[in-house]
Amino acid sequence: MTRTAEPAQRQTALSLIGLSRHFGTFKALDSISLEIEEGEFFTIVGPSGSGKTTMLRILAGLDQPTQGSLLLRGTDITRMPANQRPTAMVFQSLALFDHRSVGENVEFALKMRGMPKPERREQAFELLDLVHLGRDYYNRAVTQCSGGERQRVALARALASDPEILFFDEPLSALDYRLRKTLEVELRELQRRTGRTFVYITHSLEEAMVMSDRIGIMREGKLVQIGTPAEIYGQPKDRFVARFMGEVNIFEVSDHRLVDFEASVSTVKDGFLIVRPEMLHPVDAEDPGLHFEATIAEVFRLGSRVQLHLETVAGLLVSEQPASCQLKPNDAVRFGFDPDQTHSVPE
């Protein structure tokens, strides 16, 4: 389940060792330990208030942990101030300098290092090209840019400092759906191309799934589970993670019996059975697994798929079928799933 047998050829970029951040009695971060590898796209997902932003601010040096330490390639940087860390952050509000032009925003970090103006501008031009804005934008006012353009300016500004690690604090959350999708792909591409380590936080599972090499799920200041998107989707550690990763049917198992169906499942451990909507489908009598009567309550067409709400002995269940599915409300159909193909969690 956890990735103890990680291939050793990859170097560790950032090590978090028992990081805690307390605000009075409130534990915003509760002893987080984590290793982020060189060149990976690591995403931290969690509901709001789970401590994601606190964690990112500590990694960037904008806040100090109450306990624990932080190593960058083995060097302790826990007390190093933000302006000395070789990292850069893209903020949730973007935090663009509204009183300065696009170009001046991009080359801010270079100016802080005392680089002369002509060189700065050359680099800013390259960065503007890299983020698909183009050098025409150099003299434009930040306030005249659209949401997507501002996004790219913020990205170019962070890249300008040539950071070893880039942090992202839900930068896409304010954009519309299509633009978000485009930028997700671009961001992933940029990360592959530059080979840099990206640490990204979001509350959107979808965003995490599309972009990440690995995902960490956070809840109430703790890292609940770490793994690849497939691992977290297919083998969630508990019901919280399972629910967080999308629509799911959860059945209680007690004494090797599925309580809701009053059926025995000898192979499954006691706890809860996680059945994803796509595992629940119409069955023939000879199909293996558990079968039950269902009445179609609602049909939602989601483009490439159809989502069905089923009324069953176990209450309302969710199933997803290919778009070719012709079932209509009030149809009575036998549905089923194979308990051996599903995943169970103890809590």
Partner: peptide, 15 residues
Amino acid sequence: YDPAQEDAARDLGAS
């Protein structure tokens, strides 16, 4: 004023 601008400047190396 968005105080995150100050964080951003710090993060980008400003004293």
